[in-house]
Design a protein around this nucleic acid. Structure first.
Lengths: 203, 203
DNA sequence: ATACTTACTGACCGTTGAGTCATTAAATGC
DNA sequence: GCATTTAATGACTCAACGGTCAGTAAGTAT
């Protein structure tokens, strides 16, 4: 019977491991109903250690949300800016693909948390707005503008708010968060909308 | 100095008063962070009385959500079914008006609560789905169908999911709940969408 | 007036959970 | 080996909150 050590010291990995566990727990229970003890158990550490890396529960929450946002956004928005596709191809292809993925991704969880906890964490809301929403909307606007410059779209296409592209994605997200068991072809919803908008912009 | 009574007995009004106070508190703080003591203070009664009319905190929560839903929905959906307008007039008029009102109404608060607390209260979700969502979607579907029968719309209009009408409303609601201070002309968003869909359905 | 009912109060109880910290033991250097 | 550092533990404190219930007084009947 070898004398197994009770634990290993892993200074580097702990914060991320705790953040991952916390994200899952916050996602399942919401902010107020998650207990630090559960997070710690899930991460395989003691409660005390959690407090070594994150000063308070709120700190942990904020760190976790930002962490998820950071890890997702750059890859997604990054490869958008370096595409060779025509505006129409882009909107119908990569943008649509992206939107189809979101409602089932951790971003949806973050949005749920922002909806419930946002009012009590305005700095988080701002962070999310600037790093995700504003950039995303601007990207869409760019593509429409480029389409107009190239003569793909009518000038009036610029009047449309880019939000209209995202509206069905939003509805799909909420639908799946709330009515997970009620059927709805959310992909088709988003496809229809893109076609609708493209038709209008080209006409 | 007249000997004022400490309180009045108002058996009839108390439940509604408590429900109103509870709604406001749940809206501000969410389910878990709401303290029964605060609700009671807000309603001007003692904590004990709250427990006379509502057995548990969860009971109170469910009663409150249903209460809000009941008080709103019937009037809204009711007068929809007895309209003389053409389908197009209806979609462009009363439906649009209705959608513009929702994001600032208590319904938006209820939806926020369902988003955060839904998973832990499946019966509430079902109640809401059957009494609001299903009926709302069906109403829209009816109007499209009627428009097709009357030759106002193309047959293909039926293929569109009614959800597409509501998508910008959803986005507007969430936007206002989360990004209250960031500007967005949500009314225009919904108008554009209705025009977009009508154009497509008529073409 | 007096007796009676019951809406309402508020002190109390038990539990839960955020945050602390003295102690332990894993890693590291000599 | 031995000494030193510090990652990690887990028992503890303390306040908050859901829920209870014995007592109080507002209203009512006689």
């Amino acid at each position: 019977m070898p004398n197994q050590p009770k634990y290993q010291r892993r200074k580097e990995d702990r914060p991320q491991e705790i953040a991952d566990a916390a994200f899952k727990t916050f996602a399942e229970k919401g902010y107020a109903a998650t207990r630090i003890d559960d997070v710690a158990k899930r991460a395989g550490v003691s409660k005390g250690l959690t407090y070594l890396y994150y000063k308070t529960k709120e700190d942990l929450f904020k760190a976790v949300v930002k962490n998820v946002v950071i890890r997702r956004v750059d890859s997604l928005i990054g490869n958008v800016e370096s595409t060779e596709l025509s505006s129409e191809e882009f909107l119908r292809g990569p943008l649509l693909e992206f939107m189809k993925k979101v409602p089932g991704s951790p971003i949806a969880i973050v949005i749920r948390l922002l909806i419930s906890e946002g009012p009590r964490h305005p700095d988080l809301v701002n962070y999310y707005y600037e790093n995700v929403v504003a950039r995303g909307l601007e990207a869409i606007r760019q593509f429409v503008a480029r389409g107009v410059e190239r003569g793909e779209f009518r000038r009036e296409a610029l009047d449309h708010q880019p939000h209209l592209f995202l509206a069905p994605m939003m509805l799909s997200m909420i639908w799946r968060l709330v009515f997970a068991d009620k059927p709805l072809d959310t992909d088709q919803l988003m496809e229809s909308q893109v076609e609708l908008l493209l038709a209008e912009m080209k006409a």
